[in-house]
Nucleic acid binder design. Structure first.
Lengths: 214, 214
DNA sequence: ACGTACAGTGTACAAACGTACAGGTTGCTG
DNA sequence: CAGCAACCTGTACGTTTGTACACTGTACGT
């Protein structure tokens, strides 16, 4: 069920699956076609059908592979002590095609994407509540929402990585571009943009909005 | 060129355009079909073609309408003194179909989406550098990246709003769900998750990564 | 040597797609 | 009333799509 990482000596089946992931990522579920995937993989359209029964099954195979790849990176990060402060790095360390595929899948709302997102929220919540070296525990009444929003923001950066890279002038997934993103992210999370007065005032408004106070 | 907000007494042309925006948002550019849009709007497929020449032109009309709607909200926010500390509220205040449409468009990378994103970055940068009441100016060497990343994170929340809402149990675009999101966002931006020691250490790593220091 | 399983291809077909086109209805203007 | 423009529909056509099917070649176990 598993293959090497080399882009060359792969099973034909794996080559087709990788091509499919790229096509799905670039063109969407409907936009990607069996014929297009076959051409990208350098095989005949019928061979795609031979290895994966139909388009839906091919999609499921891509989902399974992406989820598996992400799970591996996650486990590696956990066993490594999670020394890195930025959850984003987890997403960044997964292979580029997997990233792009999941970004699309998150928007097109497949079952796999839902599972991925929910797992990621759970993962963030665990890490945050446990606390790791160099990290404080978050100050919040609502850790679940805290984790969910952080997860959504980080995934959002991956989903919109094309736009972000264009705005910054360099690809943020390369060693040249990534530091600029990470540095800005650090700036954003360390300084307090909002004054304590406005903060309390806004919280008061939100509290009233949330429930008609007794 | 402009219509009322009532979902009822709209021009047929506007009804078709609104239906098209929803279909594009839900199914993507390829997934949405002329026939499906026509059925959703309660008209014949040929009428869609009559008002908008072809699918590409229909798409451009949707783009134009969405950009216009967002521009209006933005101007209103500026004239209102931008008292609200959260840029996200700008996105939130636009009509729901426009949000969903732009979220999809951002992922599918149309020209309009690029323009929207770049404008939003510019907008954020202006607001941040000018500074408004209750807001401090950001402490950063790289304001452009700061603004770009904040923009991407906020748009990311809109793009992934479905997943985020599911994780929180309530729709974050309703008065019941929004406070929970906003409160968590406030928590995230006010507390310093990372210790100063790890922060400086990480910045050092990033600086080395960025350029081979002389 | 034979047969079987598997990798791979070419052809064919029904369904859905975008779009062109001719026609029909309504309402306003001369 | 004639005519014209705008709104709206039904039909038809070429293309692309997913998929079924028959076919070839090759490796391998008996």
């Amino acid at each position: 069920m598993d293959e090497q990482r080399e882009p060359e000596d792969l099973t034909t089946r794996a080559r087709i699956r990788d091509a499919a992931m790229l096509q799905f990522a670039k063109l969407g579920e409907k936009g990607a076609t069996i014929r297009g995937i076959a051409k990208a993989a350098g095989v005949s359209p019928a061979l795609v059908q031979h290895h994966f029964k139909n388009k839906a099954a091919l999609r499921e195979a891509c989902d399974a592979h992406a989820i598996d790849a992400i799970r591996r990176v996650k486990e590696e990060a956990l066993s490594g002590g999670m020394s890195n402060p930025n959850f984003l790095t987890i997403a960044m360390q997964t292979a580029l095609p997997v990233q792009q595929y999941m970004a699309r899948a998150l928007v097109e709302d497949s079952d796999a994407a839902r599972a991925l997102f929910e797992d990621a929220v759970q993962f963030s919540e665990d890490i945050l509540s446990r606390g790791s070296s160099g990290m404080r525990k978050p100050t919040t009444d609502d850790l679940h929402a805290y984790a969910a929003v952080i997860t959504a923001m980080n995934f959002g950066l991956v989903v919109l990585n094309g736009h972000l890279s264009r705005a910054l002038g360099t690809d943020i997934l390369t060693p040249e571009g990534y530091p600029r993103l990470a540095m800005a992210l650090m700036d954003i999370h360390t300084d307090n943009l909002i004054t304590p007065e406005l903060e309390e005032q806004t919280r008061e408004v939100l509290r009233k909005m949330r429930g008609p106070d007794a």
